[in-house]
Design a protein around this nucleic acid. Structure first.
Lengths: 235, 235
DNA sequence: GAGATATGAATGAACG
DNA sequence: CGTTCATTCATATCTC
């Protein structure tokens, strides 16, 4: 926490000499700076000691103002998110056990570095071993290791994209979910005895405003549809 | 992965761009999914722990693919924006030091949810911990399957949560047509006194399933929207 | 179909 | 270190 101590309050960091930016409240690393930081991180130095942090900060300053605290925080976040992501991946892998339903990572999660997620137990921490994950997709930038890195950053922000695909398996057995007065409710796919199920005499409306027909016994013979919204109104 | 790091930030800097993004699309929650999320949030669970997040995700998957991260982000954003709105409202209230005249809130927000607003003086401060606004004390909505999944609702769930309101003007505006329980109805564009207008205590739902917020006097302040369908449910 | 708005995603900063 | 908050970036959506 030593580095942090010096940070605490730098509410207003001088946004750089150029005096033209809309006064950014927080540090916004330049692409070159990120590249440097990534390179250092991926080279194995994931938790630079204080003196090293200072050196890095000086290096970064060639591309824009930055404080030691920023560097400190950057590594801290990088470490944290890196590991978290690792954990996530691993968790989703173990989820492929006895898939009662094949559900896997669908959704397009572009290429997030990592997003937080409340976790309960779990430790493993043990300082340094960070999973690689830093397999920098070779788009290399040569950055000769850390000590020697220097110029030549023209820019080739790397980024080799890969699209993710999602596929979904519909679920659904004979039960389906509908929303009744805003509440998700499981109902069978067959006829619905409104009176018995909801205890009272109601008129059922579909969200479109049309009443759902029911017979003289208060039974909706076949109207509800999965995912739709309905409303019960006292009759 | 790391690629993402360098991917996003370059838009305000006069930096010559290089490559473009593969246009990543983002998760677009289905109406049913939003309803579920809103319901959970309004029930008081504003920051579900990891395991809960997973359950929610599985629930949401019945209506479309979604990842844990999406759920996580949703709650994080919801919380954040909710808090910010709260702060904003409060700030505008304190601006009434010497109220030489009645101040009324003329924030007509077309949408039921959220209204950003250009932040003005941001004192930021790191004080954190601000009042949550999810204090729906008991007004729960029982989302099925969740705190108990599926529920028994014979009694309609209600939304409490109200905020002080400024009253307004009754009348003067134009009229518009909305559908109430399937019936076209003319109402003024301003606040609607539900009790007076419909003679009874009701909860008003928009066809999306979301309850329309009303204050303790049974007055819908945010106004209804022309052409939309609403349902009155006895409370 | 350009501008305004709503909101998903990312990330710097902090807290405990 | 894990978690959470505040801000910002990016895009889907809506409006005129």
């Amino acid at each position: 926490m030593e580095d942090a101590t010096a940070s605490r309050q730098q509410q207003q960091q001088q946004q750089g000499e150029a005096a033209e930016q809309p006064v950014r409240s927080r540090w916004t690393p330049k692409p070159e700076q990120i590249l440097i930081l990534e390179t250092i991180f991926n080279s194995g130095m994931v938790n630079p000691p204080k003196d090293e942090t200072v050196r890095i900060r000086k290096l970064l300053e060639k591309f824009g103002s930055v404080a030691d605290a920023n560097v400190f925080y950057w590594f801290q976040n990088r470490r944290s998110r890196s590991r978290r992501r690792q954990r996530q991946v691993q968790a989703s892998l173990s989820a492929a056990d006895h898939p009662s339903e094949i559900r896997y990572d669908h959704t397009f999660s572009p290429n997030p570095l990592s997003y937080p997620m409340p976790n309960s137990g779990s430790s493993s921490s043990s300082s340094s071993s960070f999973g690689l994950e830093g397999h920098n997709s070779g788009c290399g930038i040569g950055l000769s290791g850390y000590p020697g890195l220097m110029q030549d950053f023209e820019q080739s922000p790397i980024f080799c994209h890969s699209q993710n695909q999602s596929l979904v398996v519909g679920g659904g057995a004979e039960m389906m979910t509908v929303f009744v007065n805003g509440v998700a409710t499981e109902v069978g796919r067959g006829p619905v005895d409104v009176k018995a199920m909801f205890g009272g005499d109601f008129v059922v409306y579909h969200s479109s405003g049309l009443a759902v027909e029911m017979n003289e016994y208060g039974i909706v013979m076949q109207g509800l549809q999965h995912g739709e919204s309905y409303f019960l109104v006292n009759s």
